[in-house]
Nucleic acid binder design. Structure first.
Lengths: 340, 340
DNA sequence: GTGAAAGCGCTAACAG
DNA sequence: CTGTTAGCGCTTTCAC
């Protein structure tokens, strides 16, 4: 690793430091001949500009931060965040940004995270997963006026830019599908009520039933927690109420719920049909293959970065909002094939 | 976000810039009274040191890079890398380092990654997942002399620091377990032969059989690719050769293989017993619950960071090597309970 | 189109 | 224990 500076290159190329800087940064005002000569010296010497020096002088770090709160760490069991992260990382690469990853695992992390991510001269912008009730980190970051894109619909709907999937409509589509197939007692396993994703998916469920003039039966609405075990226990609570179909607010809960159904000696979809949400790769393999709502997770990450870059270039006002569409993926668990 | 500098704080506290710097960096030589006064001003003003300026002056960025090659991206389907990343991120937090994440997704990424991670003044050290044949990035990074810890056993065993799990011994334990249970035709589904992890696990399989004086039957060794589908197809190739037990080099392949067994109308473990490798959370839920080799993935991440920090503090020579132990987790798929 | 020069905000001798 | 000073390596006016 060379320890050359601009000055060294300048000397070797017989020009000034400024000219070399211009060449490095592709500025226009350099004679083609000179540019070529300088580039050659750079190539030969393996010169690289010093990232920190550049940041200090230009007040731009070319680095973005991805902040995933604690609630999320458990979610690492499911591929949602890895995929999202991939989309984000790949897009950062594309735009030549470095990605800083901030995972909040412990209570202590939670307290030290804000100074870490808001450190002056570190990040040009922040992507923050946040749809939780009582999330103070989000408040702090908003007030720091660092360009920010929230991933998910924030609980407190301030004037922040955010990007989310259309959870209401996704759930609506899922439940409408079950209605169309003729199911009469359609239950739902919701997520934790402290997250907007849960609230929105539940709303879609209610909306679909209401629009068809169905009554909402509270005994058919059971709370899960986005885990396999949560789905399992929720289903056990649900079964005495004899649902003939279940919309689970996540695939992983659907998997747990189907396990409960199987253990009770019932069959999917014959006795109880299922639709999930997420489209986990793993859920598509064992029979019955899960009918579900697919989210464009990777694209979601791409879009999030692009909005953030827009914010950085053009200012954070007005807040940008993106809601991405979902897609119903029909497989076997909903009994669609059987019903035909 | 304040745009205060050291100088401003110094003025307000009635001291020099150096003194403030000392306070900020917890240097000893400051009178307690002065320290208190300065800290108060810092608190009141919300002053934060500028990361880039600090890096430029101290030649330390307090940032580590985690580089995950392309072969790995597909692996994001399984929780191995997310968990590893968590361990790494958490440990970075602990030591007050920022973590940069470099995912190589595309062919282009592959070509631009080296300049990105080796950029002067960006990273104090690199964690690089690398156990592939023909990995030139690893070579480049080694030659750049940036402090480096390889995650996994590198294919070309140069004088590099690396950390790995004891794959040979893990596989040895798994297969020995099957031998002990009395199985006669123990097969294995290996990983791709271009990775040391596959080679090592296969070696453990062979070693376990050999030490018991068993012959190695090549028809009982089939190659998978660490995916569910790969396990499934490998098992189809395996079944005509009538194995009574299978050691799969990863849980995800074991899951695929068991699916093939089930579809063939056979039962696990009655007809064919299974032991996997990894201890995926998801594999422990459906019956038969998978007997497997647990890796200390999270601890692995912790240790990797600690070694890297050691390298940064104390120089990269001599190379450090850490091999971590695995653990046999006995559940139902191996038929241990049945055999007793 | 090119160069000189003034910072960017901090650290780390060194002197006292 | 504290202040002065000289950089760290680059960007960016501003002249020419």
């Amino acid at each position: 690793m060379s320890n050359l500076t601009l000055e060294d290159i300048a000397k070797q190329a017989g020009v000034s430091r400024s000219t070399v800087s211009r060449v490095v940064n592709d500025h226009p005002n350099v004679r083609e001949e000179v540019r070529k000569r300088v580039k050659e010296v750079i190539r030969l010497t393996g010169y690289q500009p010093h990232a920190a020096a550049r940041t200090l002088a230009s007040q731009r770090s070319w680095m973005l931060g991805l902040v995933l709160p604690r609630s999320v760490s458990s979610f690492f069991a499911d591929p949602y965040f890895p995929r999202l992260t991939q989309g984000i990382a790949q897009t950062c690469n594309q735009y030549n940004y470095t990605l800083g990853l901030f995972l909040i695992s412990t209570k202590e992390d939670e307290e030290t995270i804000f100074p870490r991510v808001s450190r002056k001269g570190l990040l040009d912008g922040i992507l923050l997963q946040s749809d939780q009730l009582g999330d103070q980190l989000t408040e702090q970051v908003i007030q720091s006026h660092i360009p920010l894109v929230i991933i998910g619909r924030p609980f407190y709907n301030k004037d922040v830019s955010y990007i989310d999937v259309d959870n209401i409509n996704g759930a609506f589509t899922a439940v409408s599908h079950l209605i169309r197939l003729g199911y009469q007692r359609i239950a739902t396993i919701t997520g934790v009520p402290t997250r907007t994703v849960s609230i929105d998916r539940k709303e879609g469920y209610i909306k679909a039933l209401s629009e068809r003039g169905r009554n909402i039966d509270e005994s058919l609405i059971v709370e899960g927690d986005f885990t396999e075990a949560g789905g399992y226990y929720a289903m056990q609570k649900l079964m005495p109420h004899k649902p003939d179909a279940v919309f689970a607010a996540s695939d992983i809960m659907a998997i747990g719920a189907m396990r409960a159904v199987r253990e009770a000696g019932l069959r999917v979809p014959e006795d109880i049909a299922f639709v999930g949400f997420d489209d986990l790769p793993l859920a598509t393999l064992p029979e019955p293959r899960l009918t579900t709502i697919r989210q464009p997770v990777y694209q979601f990450g791409v879009k999030a970065v692009e909005i953030l870059l827009d914010l950085i270039e053009n200012g954070i006002e007005p807040p940008r909002r993106i809601i991405m569409d979902t897609e119903l993926i029909i497989r076997n668990s909903c009994g669609a094939s059987r019903k035909k």
